[in-house]
Design a binder for these strands. Structure first.
Length: 653
RNA sequence: GCCCAUGUAGCUCAGUCGGUAGAGCACUUCCUUGGUAAGGAAGAGGUCAACGGUUCAAUUCCGUUCAUGGGCUCCA
C-alpha cells in the first residue's frame, strides 16, 4: 500500500507493523526511540499492524507532548503492575496521565505508606529493567468481563459496562505488561524499558470517580519524563515553588500569620502585611474614584429574610454563617451585592444618572470546607474589591469595556499577564434567551473591541448570567483566577430595581458584578509567590534601611532617616552594635529594596552608599538624590496604564 | 466534609522502644568599633497542640477535638 511515512511517499507491504513502516523512512536509531506513531489523527502502537486507512504516518518521540503523556500513562501501568505484585489483593481502577505526571487509584484494605511507595518504586525499577513488552489485544465485551471477572477486578467491569453504554462499542482493548493486564485504550510504550525517568510523589485518598458518595480509594501520584534531565528539572521547579510558598514567606517576612485559637482560614495581618494591604487598598480606592465609581460601605450582617429574597439562602446557605440577635436571625455576608442593591433602591433613579457604580472593599465570610483551606489562597474571611454596576442595557457594552481596561491597567501595575475566558449559559439557568444573548454578546463585543483574545467555556456560566473570567499568570507560569465580570439578571428582578426612563416609565437596570483583584488576601498570596517575597518598591513595607558601619554614624543615620521619612519614604535605621556584613545579610533576607550603607566616608561626604537587593547597586549618592530615585521608581509601574499613584506616610517617630 | 500524614522554644528541626526534653538561628546582657550575606561569650525561653483514657508513671501508647500539609476535575 502507498502511504506517506515521516513526509516520504513510500510503498509499504500489506500486513507490515507500524514499526516496520517507520523503519522504511527512518534510521534504526530513530525507530528505536519512537514511542508510538500518529496515523492520520489517531495514535497507534508501534507493534500494531498498519491500519488500512492510514494516509500518513508520523513517529512520536518521548520528548513531544503526546510522547510525554504516553510515557506517563505507561508509567501508571508499570506502577499498577508493581502494586499488584507487592499487594495482590489490591484492586485496580483507573490510572491516567495528568499535567504533572500520572496517578493510579487502587482499592486496598489499608492506606499505602511512604515505605510502601519506596518498595513500589523499587519494584517498578525492576520491571523497567526486565524490559517487558506492552502487548495489545482486542476483546469482545463479554470476553473482557470474563477476563476481569476472573481477576476479581470489579471496578474494571463497571468501566466496561460504562464504556458499552456510553459509546456503544462492541469491543474493548486490553494491554498486558508482564503479568499485569489492564483495560486500556492505549497506546503504550513498546517496552517497559523505555521508561527512562520516573518518581513516585505521594499517596492520597480519592473518591471513586471523584464523587464523595463513592468509596475512598488509595491514589498514588507519580511523575515521569522523557529523560532523567527533564525529571531533575521538574524537581528543581518544585523546589523553587516551595521556596516561593507565600505561607513560608509570610512568616519569614513577618507579614501575616494564622493562629490555631482563632480558627482555620482567618489571617492575622502583622504590621508589615497590613501595610502592604493598606497600600493596595488605598490605590484601589483612589483609582476607583478616578474612574467614576462611588465608594459605599454595607453592614457585615443582614437579616435572614433579605438573603431569602436574594436567593442566597436557597443556593448558598451551606457556605454562610448565621447569628441571632433579639430572636431575629441574621446572615453574615458572603457577598456584598445586597447592600449595594438597597442603596440603589433607596430613592427613585433616573436614566440620566446611570450608570451607578458602587465600589466596596467588602469583608466577606464564607464557610469553605475545612479540607480546602490553604494559606491566603483559600480562606474563610477575606476582602473583595467588589463593585456592582447598575446601568441601562445600552450602556452594558461600554461598562464592560471599562472594567476590562481597568483590569488590564491594574494587572499591568503588578506585572501580570492574563488571559480571558467567557462562560456561556448553563443548562440549569434562569432568564430569557434574549437576555442571555444580549449579555453574552456584550461580553464578546467588549473583548473584541479591546482586541483581547478569549476562550469560550460553553455552559460554564453562573445560573444567573454569563461571565468573563480573567486568569493571571505568575512567574512560574501558574495561572490564577482573580478578576471576574458577571452579568446578573436575577438580582435586579428579585429586588425589583428600576429607573425612570426617558419615556417616564419604570425600566429594569442591568447589573454587573465585578472584582479586579478578587480577594485581597488571595491576590497578595499570589503576588508574594510571583515576586518570591521581593515586593515591588511601591509596596515594600520598608523601602530603605540605613545600615551604619559603627555607632560613630548613628547621629548622621538619624538625620538621614528623618529626611527620608519627611520625603514620604518608608525607611528605618539599623544602628545596632553589629558588624556591617551581619546587618546587610539581615536586610537582604528581609528583601528590603535598598540598603543605605553609612560609614565615616559617607558622613563626611553627606551621602549614603546605596546597595540594592537585586545586586545592581546604584552606589553613593545624597539622601536627596536617593529620595528622588525612590519616588520616581514608585511611580513607574502606574505610567503604563496612564495612571499615577503615590502612597506617602509621614511618621513622626 | 472525606482519606492519609504532621503538630516538641518566636523560626527550622533533633529526641524520649513510657521515667516531665535538646541543637542552630532569633531574643536579652556583656565583650568586640568591625566597609557590603552570620565576630565572641553568657543568659533567658517549653503544661512536648487541647481534652479524655490505659498505666505506679504519658510529651511518648489509645481515643476525641482543633490546627497544618498533600489529595478528593483529569475519566479504560
Amino acid at each position: 500500500m502507498h502511504i506517506e511515512v515521516a513526509g516520504k511517499a513510500l510503498d509499504v507491504a500489506e500486513g507490515a507493523t507500524v514499526a516496520q513502516a517507520l523503519a522504511l523512512a527512518l534510521s534504526g536509531k530513530q525507530v528505536k526511540s519512537a514511542v508510538c506513531a500518529r496515523c492520520g489523527d489517531a495514535l497507534v502502537d508501534l507493534s500494531c499492524p498498519l491500519p488500512a486507512d492510514c494516509p500518513t504516518l508520523e513517529p512520536i518521540f518521548a520528548e513531544s507532548p503526546e510522547g510525554l503523556t504516553l510515557t506517563r500513562h505507561s508509567a501508571a501501568h508499570i506502577m499498577a503492575e508493581a502494586v499488584k505484585r507487592l499487594f495482590p489483593e489490591a484492586k485496580v481502577t483507573i490510572g491516567p496521565a495528568i499535567d504533572s505526571g500520572f496517578y493510579y487509584d487502587f482499592e486496598y484494605s489499608r492506606p499505602f505508606t511512604p515505605e510502601d511507595l519506596v518498595a513500589i518504586e523499587t519494584e517498578m525499577t525492576r520491571i523497567v529493567g526486565k524490559n517487558e513488552d506492552f502487548t495489545r489485544s482486542e476483546l469482545t465485551l463479554d470476553e473482557a468481563r470474563t477476563v476481569f471477572g476472573h481477576m476479581g477486578e470489579t471496578y474494571k467491569i463497571e468501566l466496561i459496562d460504562d464504556i458499552a453504554e456510553r459509546t456503544g462499542a462492541k469491543t474493548v482493548s486490553i494491554y498486558k505488561n508482564g503479568g499485569f493486564v489492564d483495560l486500556c485504550r492505549g497506546p503504550h510504550l513498546p517496552r517497559t524499558g523505555m521508561l527512562k525517568a520516573f518518581k513516585l510523589m505521594s499517596v492520597a485518598g480519592a473518591y471513586w470517580r471523584g464523587d464523595e458518595r463513592n468509596p475512598m480509594l488509595q491514589r498514588i501520584y507519580g511523575t515521569a519524563f522523557a529523560s532523567p534531565k527533564d525529571l531533575a528539572k521538574y524537581l528543581t521547579y518544585l523546589e523553587e515553588a516551595k521556596k516561593r510558598d507565600h505561607r513560608k514567606l509570610g512568616t519569614q517576612l513577618d507579614l501575616f500569620s494564622f493562629h490555631e485559637d482563632v480558627g482555620g482560614g482567618m489571617a492575622l495581618w502583622h504590621p508589615k502585611g497590613a501595610l502592604v494591604r493598606t497600600i493596595i487598598e488605598d490605590f484601589e480606592r483612589k483609582e476607583h474614584l478616578k474612574r467614576g465609581y462611588d465608594i459605599v460601605v454595607g453592614p457585615q450582617i443582614l437579616k435572614k429574610e433579605l438573603w431569602e429574597r436574594s436567593g442566597h439562602y436557597e443556593n448558598y446557605r451551606e457556605n454562610m454563617y448565621f447569628t441571632e440577635i433579639d430572636e431575629v436571625e441574621y446572615g453574615i455576608k458572603p457577598m456584598n451585592c445586597l447592600a449595594h442593591m438597597l442603596i440603589f433602591k433607596s430613592k427613585t433613579r433616573s436614566y440620566r444618572d446611570l450608570p451607578h457604580r458602587y465600589f466596596e472593599l467588602g469583608v466577606v465570610h464564607r464557610h469553605e470546607k475545612s479540607g480546602v483551606l490553604h494559606g491566603l489562597l483559600r480562606v474563610r474571611q477575606f476582602t473583595q474589591d467588589d463593585a456592582h454596576i447598575l446601568c441601562r442595557p445600552d450602556q452594558l457594552r461600554d461598562e464592560i469595556v471599562g472594567v476590562v481596561n481597568f483590569v488590564r491597567d491594574v494587572m499591568g501595575v503588578f506585572g501580570f499577564d492574563f488571559t480571558a475566558e467567557i462562560s456561556t449559559r448553563p443548562d440549569k439557568s434562569i432568564g430569557s434567551d434574549e437576555d442571555w444573548d444580549r449579555a453574552t454578546d456584550a461580553l464578546k463585543n467588549a473583548l473584541d473591541s479591546i482586541g483581547l483574545a478569549y476562550e469560550i467555556n460553553e455552559g460554564d456560566g453562573a445560573f444567573y448570567g454569563p461571565k468573563i473570567d480573567i486568569k493571571i499568570k505568575d512567574a512560574l507560569e501558574r495561572s490564577w483566577q482573580c478578576a471576574t465580570i458577571q452579568c446578573d439578571f436575577t438580582l435586579p428582578e428579585r429586588f425589583d430595581l428600576a429607573y425612570v426612563g426617558q419615556d417616564g416609565n419604570r425600566h429594569r437596570p442591568v447589573m454587573l458584578h465585578r472584582v479586579i483583584l478578587g480577594s485581597v488576601e488571595r491576590f497578595i498570596g499570589v503576588l508574594i509567590e510571583h515576586c518570591a517575597g521581593a515586593l515591588p518598591l511601591w509596596l515594600a513595607p520598608v523601602q530603605a534601611r540605613i545600615v551604619t558601619v559603627t555607632d560613630a554614624q548613628n547621629e548622621y543615620a538619624e538625620k538621614v532617616l528623618q529626611f527620608l521619612t519627611k520625603k514620604g519614604i518608608r525607611a528605618e535605621a539599623d544602628t545596632r552594635n553589629e558588624k556591617l556584613g551581619y546587618k546587610i545579610r539581615e536586610a537582604q533576607m528581609e528583601k528590603i529594596p535598598f540598603m543605605l550603607v553609612t560609614g565615616d566616608k559617607e558622613v563626611a561626604a553627606e551621602t549614603v552608599n546605596v546597595r540594592s537587593r537585586l545586586g545592581d547597586d546604584p552606589g553613593e549618592m545624597s539622601p536627596e538624590a536617593l529620595a528622588n530615585l525612590i519616588v520616581a521608581a514608585c511611580e513607574e509601574p502606574f505610567k503604563r496604564g496612564g495612571m499615577s499613584y503615590n502612597f506617602s506616610t509621614f511618621r513622626t517617630s
